[in-house]
Nucleic acid binder design. Structure first.
Length: 310
DNA sequence: ACCCAGGCCCTTG
DNA sequence: CAAGGGCATGGG
């Protein structure tokens, strides 16, 4: 059984997977569906938690409502991280990253919140995703006061289904508003069954998700990786595509799959669905069962080297 | 002003 | 199929 002290909380929470987490007063606070998670760091050296030998003793995992050991679920402590490392060790780049930033983990998110999050994530940047989601919680989520702090839980499907398009646009969703409303109604009326989809195997679950307007290849892969436990999923966004081009060109350019090279920058890193699937299939074969971890390490690395702070 | 952002949809050729 | 334009919005 692995020890949770190897996890770097700041790194994992700050790696563009979750958007409703905030740090203040030595605590991380996060919205997870109808739960509020609190990670209380009773120490000053919060930047290098994973290097601290007595990490476990200085940290408390609290929640509202009470959820004993939610951290085991959220940080995926059930994953065998040594096994993950081993299964990715054939790749030079990734094994190096697994050493350098070994505290980075995939987080297990609440499914509905995750779906809305990555529907909102299309063609925009992380700060704006955060604002859109916060606005949704503020407008449609239940308000909870804990001590002197105010939180808003993530709305339920019916809450968003009953909203008007204008109200959603007021949250800053733009053209995404109609997608968010439609899938919320379909989940709320039972037409879309998240538990059913979650229990399907990766490719079948993916097909079901993509049936929803607004969810394409990449968005589906994020949902599958971040909340449906499909650790082989490998979302390819513009950042990942840049990384693939830089470090895995032998993989993405073989058989002349990609002819984006000559396009102007704004189109250069966008894949059409067919190419996406061909490249994805190669990545699955190459990285295997835990391809998603490789993806997250690569994502963090390429953004870090581009100087992104968020 | 222009380009870009954890893309996707729709129309045309 | 592939290509191209449009989409809302805010930061750099």
């Amino acid at each position: 059984m692995r020890n949770s002290k190897d996890i770097d909380i700041n790194l994992s929470i700050g790696s563009g997977q979750v958007f409703l987490w905030e740090y203040h007063d030595n605590s991380w606070y996060g919205i997870h569906g109808k739960n509020i998670f609190q990670i209380k760091l009773n120490k000053d050296n919060t930047q290098d938690i994973h290097k601290d030998q007595k990490w476990d003793e200085k940290i408390e995992y609290l929640s509202y409502p009470r959820w004993e050991h939610w951290e085991k679920y959220f940080f995926r402590l059930d994953d065998n991280f040594d096994g993950i490392k081993k299964s990715l060790s054939h790749d030079q780049k990734i094994s190096k990253l697994l050493e350098q930033i070994s505290g980075l983990r995939i987080l297990r998110q609440e499914p509905f919140q995750c779906i809305i999050s990555f529907l909102c994530a299309s063609n925009t940047n992380i700060p704006r995703i955060r604002r859109m989601l916060y606005n949704l919680t503020k407008k449609f989520g239940e308000k909870i006061e804990l001590g002197n702090k105010r939180f808003y839980l993530f709305p339920e499907p019916k809450d968003i289904a009953n909203a008007s398009i204008m109200e959603l646009i007021d949250c800053g969703l733009g053209y995404r508003a109609k997608y968010v409303k439609t899938i919320s109604s379909n989940i709320s009326n039972g037409e879309v069954d998240l538990t059913y989809i979650q229990n399907l195997e990766y490719l079948k679950a993916r097909i079901e998700l993509i049936k929803n307007t607004g969810i394409g290849n990449k968005t589906a892969d994020c949902i599958l990786l971040f909340s449906f436990n499909k650790t082989n999923s490998f979302p390819i966004d513009v950042w990942i595509f840049r990384a693939l081009e830089k470090y895995y060109s032998w993989l993405i350019y073989e058989n002349n799959i990609n002819n984006n090279k000559e396009k102007k920058d704004s189109k250069k890193y966008k894949l059409n669905p067919k190419k996406y699937d061909i490249i994805l299939n190669k990545l699955e074969n190459y990285f295997g069962e835990y391809a998603g971890y490789a993806q997250q390490y690569l994502y963090y690395y390429i953004r870090e080297s581009a100087g992104k702070k968020w």
